[in-house]
Design a protein around this nucleic acid. Structure first.
Length: 489
DNA sequence: AAAAAAC
């Protein structure tokens, strides 16, 4: 953030008339100068107007709506313990669980000196703690649509007093087929409310959504849509499909990349690549929709803590995720949807920092490349990449499955092995044409009976403690929580 | 052609 000190803007957060408790939190978050979208959006939201915003995350979008929402709700903040005094007054919807979590963390930080309560609900995790939190009452609720509707159905969430609705990454939500869910949610809200819609693009569908649910919205656009940040250097490397894994390793090593997100087009591809990178000595883990929510969160947290060099992701991580100081993004595959390219590379070069967007393009991906160049309205720098000494050992026999299985699952591999204890680990291996081994791709799920045994054992070991603070994941030796370990109702 | 999201 120190770079922003040279920004010629003289604006400060003081100009908006935000409460001291909010300004204090802003200061503690390290922000001093509002970003362009904040400068434009905060007064509009404070005035109670509906708004359509075109901005990507990392432009300060979350604060641009969170801060004025907190300000607007402040007069109604209650210190009462009664849940009835804490109805949901602001609802923020996001397309992915990780994004919901991230927005919630921001809201929590900005509201921490106020009496307002916030909570986040999304699928893939136990409903009960969420229900309990909702029962105690929250004024600001961040959610993914499906789980929110689940809570509504269970009567653990009541949306009858919502005054402000935020649709974050609205275009993405439509892409993902959330329209019916959004319509159901919108029908549960009071007609008299403020609605804010954020979208990367204003397509016909988005305009229709806005025309239906927003009233006389003010439009705010900070960057031309589909533009890419100028501080991100984009390079495309022509490479044979089979050389891609070697190319990723080479780029990481040659450029000395400490951290990188590597995007793949498929979940299986992401899992496979993470495993291959591990074998070449890159600390890597995969994040995609076939992994449990616990595994996804652990992967992201470990990456943010700097414990992982390469986060191999599907487009679940393409939008909105804010990872500080990410120096580079690699496209292992070029996305089929050109817009996703813009979002993917938007993970780097954030908050004014510079970043590299390195894309691998095999001969059969030329069409995708052309689509991207058309969208961003400029040709990309295409270079030929010679993959030196690909880490392949064609002369070696394929390892028997039994031996490989001793490595454990792909995500366990993120904890680097020490040479001594793993005899089979350094064994040469194949890099391509490996049959997809179900063992590595299927998430590990202990049987319900074994989970019960472990829980019983844990309870017996610590009978004094009312609720074991030890997460079940830890008891399972680092494996993720099984998807359905506990009763949902 | 693939990803995401409720159970």
């Amino acid at each position: 953030m120190s770079d922003t000190a040279v920004t010629p803007s003289t604006a400060t957060f003081d100009q908006f008339g935000l409460a001291p408790d909010i300004l204090k939190a802003v200061k503690e978050s390290g922000y001093t100068i509002p970003t362009p979208i904040q400068e434009q959006a905060i007064p509009v939201v404070l005035a109670g107007r509906d708004m359509m915003g075109a901005a990507q995350t990392g432009t300060g979008k979350t604060a641009s709506f969170s801060l004025p929402i907190i300000q607007r709700l402040l007069p109604q903040a209650s210190t009462s313990a009664s849940p009835a005094r804490h109805p949901v007054r602001a609802l923020i919807l996001t397309p992915t669980r990780e994004l919901a979590d991230q927005v919630a963390a921001n809201v929590q930080a900005y509201a921490k000196h106020t009496a307002l309560r916030s909570a986040v609900v999304f699928g893939g995790v136990d409903m009960n703690p969420q229900s309990e939190q909702l029962r105690r009452g929250v004024e600001i609720l961040i959610a993914t649509p499906g789980r929110l509707l689940d809570h509504v159905q269970q009567k653990t969430a009541n949306l009858g007093q919502v005054q402000i609705l935020v649709l974050d990454e609205a275009d993405r939500m439509l892409d993902m087929g959330f329209l019916p869910d959004l319509q159901r949610i919108l029908n549960l809200l009071p007609k008299e409310r403020q609605t804010l819609l954020f979208s990367a693009t204003f397509s016909g569908e988005i305009k229709k959504l806005a025309a239906t649910y927003l009233r006389n919205p003010q439009t705010i656009e900070v960057a031309r849509s589909n533009s890419t940040a100028t501080n991100v250097t984009q390079v495309v490397y022509e490479v044979a499909e089979g050389d891609k894994t070697g190319a990723v390793v080479q780029l990481i090593r040659e450029r000395g990349l400490k951290q990188v997100i590597v995007f793949c087009n498929s979940k299986i591809g992401a899992s496979r690549l993470a495993r291959s990178l591990e074998r070449d000595g890159v600390v890597a883990t995969a994040i995609h929709g076939d992994r449990t929510q616990n595994e996804r969160m652990q992967a992201l947290d470990a990456f943010k803590r700097g414990e992982i060099e390469a986060l191999v992701a599907t487009d679940v991580a393409a939008r909105g995720l804010d990872i500080a100081e990410l120096p580079a993004v690699i496209n292992f595959d070029l996305p089929f949807n050109a817009e996703d390219y813009v979002h993917r590379i938007g993970r780097t070069g954030r908050a004014g920092a510079s970043g590299d967007a390195l894309s691998l393009c095999s001969p059969n991906e030329r069409k995708q490349l052309a689509d991207i160049e058309k969208l961003i309205k400029r040709p990309l720098d295409v270079q030929r990449l010679t993959v030196e000494a690909p880490v392949r050992h064609h002369h070696e026999e394929r390892a028997p499955r039994r031996e490989r299985s001793s490595e454990g699952r792909e995500d366990r591999g993120s904890r680097r092995r020490t040479g001594a204890s793993s005899g089979s680990y350094d064994r040469p291996h194949h890099h391509r044409a490996q049959p997809v081994d179900d063992f590595f791709l299927k998430p590990y799920e202990p049987s319900p009976s074994s989970v019960r045994k472990i829980e019983e054992a844990a309870a017996a070991a610590a009978p004094q403690k009312p609720a074991s603070k030890q997460p079940l994941a830890a008891l399972l030796g680092g494996f993720g929580m099984p998807r359905k370990s506990s009763s949902s109702t």
